[in-house]
Design a protein around this nucleic acid. Structure first.
Lengths: 219, 219
DNA sequence: ACACCGGGTATTGTATACAATAGAATCAAT
DNA sequence: ATTGATTCTATTGTATACAATACCCGGTGT
């Protein structure tokens, strides 16, 4: 079994959800495109049921909207959305930094340090795709360490939304090295358990990422 | 038709989703309770399909978690979650205030004023349930006016999460009047298009709501 | 030419049937 | 009595069948 959809998730629904979300975020389905249950189901070699459920979840995340008895359409992410997300992240990651520094256990701290070292290694090797993955893990670990369900939820969702953009941003000249230094500063603040400084450097990091994105857009 | 589930939403799935969410938030289902698709379906006089879809959505919102082939269990909201949500709202509604003041059109502003007057009327009459509803509409209108999809989504979800708590808080002695004054101050700042002041008074409003909740918890 | 009606098609909405799985209960062997 | 295998049951996972709806398109009357 496991034909067509691709491995990874647990149930078909989960896999389809992840796949569709990725496809939308990758631009395979553009804004306004209609997603037809039966068509998708046939493409993936499954029945409509799990496809439907996946679509309902996408709907809740705001990636698609559905007109009853008519169809489901891709909502798309505008560059305004991206900017908004960065602005929101500036606030929220500050909060995350404070909480994480207060609540993070030593083992997670060690892991965070480790992730940072790996990022250094792959940045040196120029494998930026891998760096991008590690970057996600880095921030996810911080979210996780806040031990705050509501905060985790928001930030993890955004993480997916802007994943591709962040990766592209990372590939602009010099940004990878700068980003690495910022991550190092974050780890230092975490190790010192300095919430004040942690918040500052993390917010600064987001702000720089955002600036880099805006600069990139203009080109 | 429309038997059992109760009106309101559009499709069965939507109605069931709203009903289940309300029931969880109302404490009808407590943390750890298991939700059995077939049982719920029979109770509401529908088939499993729409129930399943509703549950999947609840899962994405984090209100339930599902163990494959075993069951779905209510996640529940801890008082830690509530506190976190208030902290998050302090940040986010500040942002919302700034954006809304910049982007709100005159008609919405008029509506906002109107909502505030209605709140005054019903506060005077002592109909706090109605005031609670208007309160939600008031904040929703602000969210809507930010014209920001990501921000709207986050804040609207939280609105439901803490709706009942806010209502209870409103019923503590003197709070309704204080809340009303804070709303008036918000409207004034919006009318003056003073983003700086708007942010300050709105954040202050959230902070007071939160303090009131914490005070209430102790009793 | 134009508005109106009616049927046909595409699509989703809902119900039901069947498969797979996990866990509990039973029972036999040591 | 304990352990291990085995059956049984509850529950979800997936597929399919059928119903309802919206929209397109062609025909018809004026």
């Amino acid at each position: 079994m496991k034909r067509g959809v691709g491995q990874g998730g647990y149930s078909l629904r989960e896999k389809i959800f992840l796949k569709l979300r990725q496809d939308i975020l990758d631009g395979k389905y553009k804004a306004g495109d209609s997603l037809v249950e039966l068509k998708l189901a046939e493409e993936m070699g499954v029945s409509r049921t799990p496809v439907r459920e996946a679509i309902r979840q996408l709907e809740l995340e705001g990636l698609v909207f559905s007109i009853p008895n008519k169809g489901v359409f891709v909502e798309g992410i505008t560059s305004q959305d991206i900017e908004d997300i960065y602005a929101i992240r500036e606030c929220m990651e500050g909060l995350a930094a404070r909480w994480a520094i207060e609540r993070m256990d030593d083992q997670s701290l060690k892991e965070l340090e480790n992730l940072c070292e790996l990022m250094e290694f792959y940045t040196g090797k120029g494998d930026l795709d891998r760096v991008g993955e590690l970057n996600s893990e880095f921030h996810d670990l911080i979210f996780e360490s806040t031990k705050s369900k509501p905060l985790k939820q928001i930030l993890s969702d955004f993480q997916y939304y802007i994943g591709n953009i962040r990766l592209a941003s990372l590939k602009s000249p010099g940004r990878a090295e700068q980003s690495l230094n910022e991550h190092k500063a974050i780890v230092e603040a975490f190790k010192d358990r300095d919430a004040e400084r942690g918040e500052r450097v993390l917010v600064e990091h987001i702000r720089n990422t955002r600036r880099n994105y805006e600069k990139m857009r203009k080109d």
